[in-house]
Amino acid sequence: MTRAFAPRSRPSLARYLAAAVVLLASAAPAAAQILDRSMSAPHPFGLLLGDVFTLRTRVDVAAPFKLDASALPKPGPVTYWLDLRSITIRESTTPGGATRYEIAAEYQTFYAPLEAIEQTVPSLKLVVTDGKGGRAEADGASWSFITSPLRPIAATAGAASAYGLRPDALPIRKSLRDAEIAAGAAGGATLLALALLAWSRAWPPFHRRPSRPFASAARAVARQAKAGDEGWRNAALSLHRAFDAAAGRRLLGEDLSAFLAGRPSFLRLEPRIRQFFEASRQAFFGAAPAVSRMPADELLALSRSLAAAERTS
C-alpha cells in the first residue's frame, strides 16, 4: 500500500509515515530563494470523524533567507470541520549550506460524512525573508483525503461481536483528592485568618477581650450615641468604662496626663480625648448640660480612633 515518490525523504521519516509522501513539483514557479519543497502525509483514505493526522512539509531555503514563522497558521479551527491542533518547526542545515525547515502540522477532522467523500486540507503559505526587506512567498501543497462515515457492520453475526459498535467508553474519573486537600487547606486558612482578624478587632466571639475595651466601647457608642441626650450620655459612659478598663482603675480627667504618658499610641489623640473629658464633665457635672458638648459623630469617630490606637499599642 506504500507509494514512495519521495527521493529525498529520509528513511526514519518513511518509517514513521504510514503511507505516502507527496513530492511537490520542483518545477513549480517557486521563488529562487526557496530551493526545495516537499510534503509527506499519511494514507489519504480511511479517515473517520475525529481522526488526527500530521502533514509534514520540508522546505530548503537559501541563505540568508529564513522562514517567517509568523506567516504560518496558528493552532485553532481552520475550517468548520478541521482543527489545526499544533504546528512545530524544526530547523537544520543541508549539506549544501541551505537552511532546512521541517514543519509538522497536526490536524483533526470533525467532518461527519454520510458517505465516503473527498476533503481537502488547505495548503500552508510559506514566506521567507532575508531580514533586509527581501521577501519571497510560495504555497505548500494541499492534501486531499477520503473520509468515510461511521457505520456498524451489519453483516457480522450478533451485536456483541468484536465488530459491533460498542458503547462509548466511560470518561475517566480523575481523582480530585489534591484539589480537595488544597481547597480544604485554603478554607481552613481563611477561617484561621478570619478568627485572627476577629481576635485582633475584638469582634464576637472575642468581643469581651480584656485588652480591647475600646473596641467594644466603639460598638456601644455606635449603637447609642445618636439616640438623643440620654443616648449620648450612655455612649459617653461606655467610653468612660473603656478608659477605666484600659487604666485598670477609674480614670478621672486630672489623671489623663499620667494615663497618656504610658500609652504613646494614644498620644496622637490627646486633644480629642481631652475634649471628650471636658464635654463629659459638662454633661455629667455641669449646671447646664447639653451645652458645648461633643457632637455624636465626633464621639463615634473618637471611639473608633481609640479602638484603632488600642490595636497598635
Binding site: 459617653a236 459612659l237 468612660h240 468604662r241 477605666d244 485598670g248 482603675r249 477609674r250 478621672l252 463629659s280 455629667f284 457635672f285
Partner: peptide
C-alpha cells in the same frame, strides 16, 4: 474605693 466606684 476610688478605683472601684465608677465616675461619672
Amino acid at each position: 474605693v476610688f478605683d472601684k466606684v465608677p465616675a461619672p
